[in-house]
Simulated assay, not measured.
Amino acid sequence: MTDQGKFARFLITLSAVVVAGCALTVTIKVMNTDTEALYPPRLLDQEAVELQVARAARGPKNPSRDGVECPTAMEARKGNKFDCKVLVGYNDKTVTVEVLDDQGELSTTAS
């Protein structure tokens, strides 16, 4: 009877060690997971950006997005900069856009 009790305690101890090892392995895997893959980057609203760029280049009286070319899928990350082209009359104007914060607040500079 005592041999069976010792064997049972050995199996319980071995099982606990195996479960702890598995838990440790899963924890290490989760901690090393790339968070970019889990949470894709926030992108700017393309239409809103083009409308703001049109207002910067043409003024508030002609806010049409027609003739505005901006890069697509721009990330809403502080410090991100990109240029848009705006057709004003027969000329192209370049508007530099800078993302001011992670919420998508923008600064535009027409040149």
Rank of each mutant, 00 (worst) to 15 (best):
G89D: 12
S107P: 00
E36C: 00
A110F: 00
Y39Q: 09
M31N: 02
R58K: 12
A20N: 02
T109H: 04
M1T: 10
C84P: 05
G21M: 05
V86E: 09
R58Q: 05
S107G: 01
N91P: 00
K6H: 06
V19P: 01
E36F: 06
T27F: 05
C22W: 08
D101R: 10
R9A: 03
K6S: 04
V49M: 01
E50N: 13
A37G: 01
Y90A: 15
G89K: 12
T94G: 05
M31S: 03
R77M: 09
K93G: 00
K61S: 14
P71R: 08
D34R: 08
G79A: 12
A54L: 03
K85V: 13
L51V: 10
E36Q: 10
P41C: 05
N80S: 00
P63R: 13
R42I: 07
E75K: 12
K29R: 10
M74A: 05
P63L: 11
E69I: 15
S64W: 07
K78F: 06
N91F: 14
D34A: 04
K81M: 13
G89P: 11
D102Q: 14
A57Y: 03
V95M: 06
R42S: 09
Q46P: 04
K81Q: 14
V53Y: 04
R77D: 06
S111F: 07
D66H: 12
V19W: 02
M74G: 01
K61A: 14
A37Y: 01
K93W: 04
V68K: 06
V17I: 14
L87I: 14
G5Y: 02
R58D: 02
E105V: 15
A23G: 14
N80P: 00
Q4D: 05
T35Q: 10
N80L: 08
V18A: 13
R77N: 05
I12W: 02
A16Q: 13
F10R: 10
Y90R: 15
C22I: 14
L24M: 12
T108Q: 10
T94Y: 04
V99S: 02
T27P: 00
V53F: 06
M31Q: 08
I28D: 08
V53L: 06
V26Y: 01
V97E: 03
Q4K: 06
R42A: 12
K6M: 05
Q4W: 01
L106H: 10
G79F: 11
T109A: 09
M74K: 12
K93D: 07
G59H: 05
P60R: 13
D92K: 15
T2Y: 01
K61N: 13
D3C: 00
S111H: 11
V68D: 03
D92Y: 15
T25Q: 09
T13C: 06
T13L: 11
A56G: 04
T94W: 03
L87C: 01
